[in-house]
Design a protein around this nucleic acid. Structure first.
Length: 256
DNA sequence: ATGTCCCAACTTTTGGGA
């Protein structure tokens, strides 16, 4: 079973690339973030034509998350049950072929002194609580744009990011708190050397300079982790005409 | 060198957000 996540930065603009990517990479489940669409605008029919059913949670201009699956979508759940999430459209969950899949778009945080940074940490803590509530033997993966680079090896230059969000100790501690539940940032097992990124700023030619960060994560539950057989970033999807600023992150799972 | 992209709207330019 192939499960992927991709912050598409507007599904309206990216639909042709998403359809191409589904056809090439053949994921069973694709989580999307930043669709930037209201539910009625989401291209359910185009994806259906490609063999995928979808669930979407969006408010229109900002945010928006979806799960696209060719192996079923059951027990769909939206948000984290907090008033702060009502206008957020940052989480959608569904069970796909027995795996609980959570498509996450963690708040950006903006700056370390911003109220949005406080909200980001609070959101991550609510996600941790939600994961802690899952049955201990459940097959769960929380994947998406976490807007946190968990380790120094996940960014091109720590010195350049001094005092910025995405690399601060409290943000990393929020990810570590999920790992403390027994979850695994499973990509690291397959790329322990680091230096593999999933996002590059549009500005300043960052992609061509290799100025990226790994902020799109797949956090797997204790029961799911041993079944993961591979993980990679499809860096090619960041190239060419009208790319998202994120590349898809893919994990392969060998279900019994 | 915050140098791009995407969205909405008091829409054909501008401001907000990432």
């Amino acid at each position: 079973m192939r499960i992927a996540t991709w912050n598409v930065n507007s599904m309206n603009v990216r639909l042709p690339r998403v359809l191409d990517w589904l056809s090439t990479m053949q994921p069973d489940v694709l989580c999307l973030q930043e669709t930037k669409q209201a539910d009625e605008k989401f291209p359910f029919a185009d994806l259906e034509e490609a063999g995928y059913t979808s669930v979407h949670h969006g408010e229109g201009r900002w945010n928006g998350v979806a799960i696209v699956s060719r192996v079923g979508l059951e027990e769909v759940e939206v948000g984290l049950g907090s008033p702060e999430d009502e206008q957020g459209a940052r989480l959608i969950a569904a069970t796909c072929a027995g795996v609980r899949v959570m498509s996450c778009y963690v708040p950006n945080g903006r700056t370390l002194d911003s109220e949005h940074y406080v909200g980001k940490l609070a959101w991550l803590d609510r996600l941790r609580s939600r994961l802690a509530e899952q049955p201990p033997d459940a097959l769960v993966v929380a994947l998406g744009d976490f807007n946190v680079a968990p380790a120094d090896a996940d960014v091109w230059d720590m010195a350049a990011l001094e005092g910025m969000t995405h690399v601060s100790r409290p943000e990393r501690a929020a990810i570590e708190a999920v790992l403390a539940l027994g979850y695994e940032d499973v990509f690291v097992r397959f790329h322990p050397e680091g230096g593999v990124y999933s996002w590059w700023d549009y500005r300043d030619g960052a992609f061509h300079k290799g100025h990226g960060m790994r902020i799109d994560l797949a956090l797997t539950s204790p029961a799911l982790s041993p079944l993961v057989t591979g993980a990679f970033v499809d860096r090619d999807a960041r190239k060419g005409v009208k790319p998202s600023d994120h590349a898809p992150v893919v994990i392969d799972v060998d279900l019994p």
